[in-house]
Nucleic acid binder design. Structure first.
Lengths: 218, 218
DNA sequence: TAGATTGTTAATCGATTAACAATC
DNA sequence: TAGATTGTTAATCGATTAACAATC
């Protein structure tokens, strides 16, 4: 997807981290925080934190720092967590179920409206009180229920077909866990979670580390 | 974790993608590929691809391009996929089960040696032929079985304790799915998969897109 | 007020892209 | 050989860090 905003993805991907750490601070009843303190917690530099936040406005106060509650709320709003998103999960396997059962998403406004699967044995069942539908009806369901986000938890060989159904039904975004890229119109946001890429990175770092240790021996 | 290698993480994180696309090409019986063709497939620039590959050696041939089989094997080796890693999964919930059942990892050398859980009802069961142990025994199991990678699929409130047991047992890397950071000695590789950060990024982009469309109306 | 800390500009650093000579 | 495409250097671009005036 093409983006028109001036905010770089590097900044955008740090926002959820700020949000998470501010939630922690809130939970611990901490009322104010400086960029320096945030730096210690997050591992980002204080300078970067101030730069990032200033992309969206001057949330701080000279000599004081940031009000935790206020900043948390501002970032929630920036992230679009102040509204409801309708989602469907496609693929009722372990991964799909893991997401259905993860209440944190629902608490933050992501409502699962239905689950879809090809397996006729699963169709009609309920998982965490959400009905499993036949994937045949995916496109029409998406269209008729104003689904915003389609979550793909199918095997690789199904994901393109599913993505097309989601796109035709009118989703605005696809969250894809299948280990493959999906091809959809440019205006649809696609976020891939490629677990194997993450694991292979671990593998690379392990090997690198081992070679380093080996070379140190001599 | 601190790194000593000169290869930047930006490059490292592209390697699994190259690996995946080359697997596809191999599967389609394609024997040679140029950086330009790879560019079309991957979306990276041809220049970047050549730069990336040259961090590790001159795998190509002027006037010809790259031999797909050869390059695939080279990258496998660079990623450390030419050896076996012993892993344990901690947390036998849906996510843990999803990973156990995902044969792709096993095929690439990541062998699940055991699953751990706190729930006494699960202890002793087998999931995909792998025994579920009591999390009490995690540290000693890791030590006695030469576990390389610990995979954390527990809720947030358990993950630090689990990470410490893994670290004390002697794992070299932790793959963490809990929505929280873990604190372990610097020499241990930690790779986080924070799903909510990924979803919140989607949410941000949705909101951005909506605001853009709104502003275009006027 | 004095001290602290932001918001913001300028400097630096690193990553990506462009260009092209080398060479298959 | 001529054409194609790499490997590699140099140029550009973007992101991070440093510095400090503004100001609470």
């Amino acid at each position: 997807m093409e983006r028109f905003s001036s905010i770089s993805m590097a900044v955008v991907r740090r926002l959820p981290k700020y949000h998470r750490y501010l939630s922690e601070l809130k939970k611990n009843d901490i009322k104010r925080v400086s960029s320096q303190e945030l730096s210690k917690i997050t591992g980002f530099t204080a300078s970067q934190i101030r730069q990032d936040l200033n992309c969206f406005g001057g949330f701080g106060q000279q000599g004081y720092g940031y009000n935790v509650d206020d900043l948390h709320q501002q970032i929630s709003k920036i992230l679009g967590l102040d509204r409801i998103y309708n989602t469907v999960i496609v693929g009722a396997g372990n991964l799909g179920q893991a997401i259905v059962n993860y209440t944190f998403f629902e608490k933050n406004g992501f409502v699962t409206k239905a689950i879809f699967d090809v397996n006729p044995k699963l169709v009609g069942l309920k998982i965490n009180d959400i009905k499993v539908h036949d994937v045949e009806n995916l496109e029409s369901f998406v269209r008729e229920n104003g689904i915003d986000i389609g979550i793909i938890c199918t095997p690789k060989n199904q994901c393109q077909k599913v993505a097309e159904a989601l796109a035709n039904g009118g989703v605005q975004a696809i969250w894809n866990f299948a280990p493959s890229d999906v091809n959809v119109p440019e205006e649809i946001i696609v976020e891939n979670v490629h677990l194997s890429e993450s694991l292979f990175t671990v593998s690379y770092l392990l090997k690198e580390r081992e070679e380093l240790l080996k070379s140190k021996k001599y």
